[in-house]
């Protein structure tokens, strides 16, 4: 029986354990030594980048789930002309590289962007937030919402209608049905889609790179350390922590959802 584990063990060793160990060792081999790891917590530049990364990822996840839950349940439950076309178009953003998404954010919220022109025309200030964390947040949400909607839709389709009818027969209002039946039924899908959304937002680089300038998220810091400062050890330490944090979040989500994550994902 143990031999059946071999392929998995080989894969795990080659693509996960080995690189992570190497990365961890390299992280401690620089001029700072092992204190490179503590520097992530003590050096405000790194620490703030870590916080910003996790913050944007968390905000992206929450916003994505909120939008996708409402849109996904609606799209699954209501058939209207163009429904199928709309759903098929949802896969489009998945094909875009981060650069394109960053470009779209700039066109929307950049200095020459639509939102800026609109707010100015309405007599207010010119809103420009493409080059900040706000722009990054917008790009990530844009990228994550379609996939999450598709996950929510397939989970909604599998919900047992009878449960909702049973709740209503016991006097539950529409709102209570949503709260007591639909949301708990969709929970596994939320956790699985949310985890993927979070991990994507933590690690995405292309969008941040395109928006550039003032955005100080971990993938950007790693890039700077690596290419500009040639501080390979620090870049490795940051990479390791980035990987570890993402892994931790996914592992927690997996535990919370039981075995359902893989199935719903």
């Amino acid at each position: 029986m143990i031999y059946l584990l071999l392929p998995a063990a080989a894969f795990f060793g080659a693509f996960f354990l080995l690189p992570m160990c190497r990365l961890f060792l390299v992280g401690g081999s620089g001029t700072r030594g092992w204190s490179a790891y503590t520097a992530i917590l003590t050096d405000p530049v790194y620490f703030n980048a870590l916080l910003a990364t996790l913050g944007v990822a968390a905000a992206t996840t929450v916003a994505t789930l909120l939008i996708s839950a409402i849109a996904g349940v609606f799209l699954q439950r209501h058939r209207f002309p163009g429904n199928a076309l709309l759903v098929s178009m949802l896969t489009l953003p998945l094909a875009f590289p981060g650069v394109v998404i960053g470009f779209m954010v700039i066109m929307l919220a950049g200095r020459q962007g639509l939102i800026g022109a609109l707010t100015q025309a309405l007599g207010g200030d010119k809103w420009v937030f493409a080059y900040s964390l706000g722009g990054l947040f917008m790009g990530y949400v844009y990228f994550s919402v379609p996939r999450t909607i598709l996950t929510v839709m397939s989970a909604t389709e599998k919900l047992d209608h009878r449960l909702e009818e049973a709740a209503r027969s016991l006097g539950a209002s529409t709102w209570r049905v949503v709260l007591d039946v639909i949301l708990p039924g969709l929970k596994p899908a939320f956790i699985s889609a949310g985890a993927i959304c979070f991990a994507t937002a933590v690690g995405a680089f292309g969008t941040a790179f395109t928006l550039a300038a003032r955005i100080n998220v971990l993938p950007m810091v790693i890039y700077t350390e690596f290419t500009l400062s040639a501080n390979i050890a620090m870049a490795a330490a940051l990479s390791f922590v980035l990987g570890a944090v993402t892994w931790l979040v996914l592992a927690l989500a997996r535990t919370a959802a039981g075995s359902t994550v893989a199935a719903a994902g």
């Binding site: 047992d160 009878r162 449960l163 009818e165 049973a166 709740a167 708990p184 039924g185």
Partner: peptide, 9 residues
């Protein structure tokens, strides 16, 4: 109901 329709949560 035939399917019982009990709330699993």
């Amino acid at each position: 109901f035939q399917s019982y329709a009990l709330f699993p949560n």
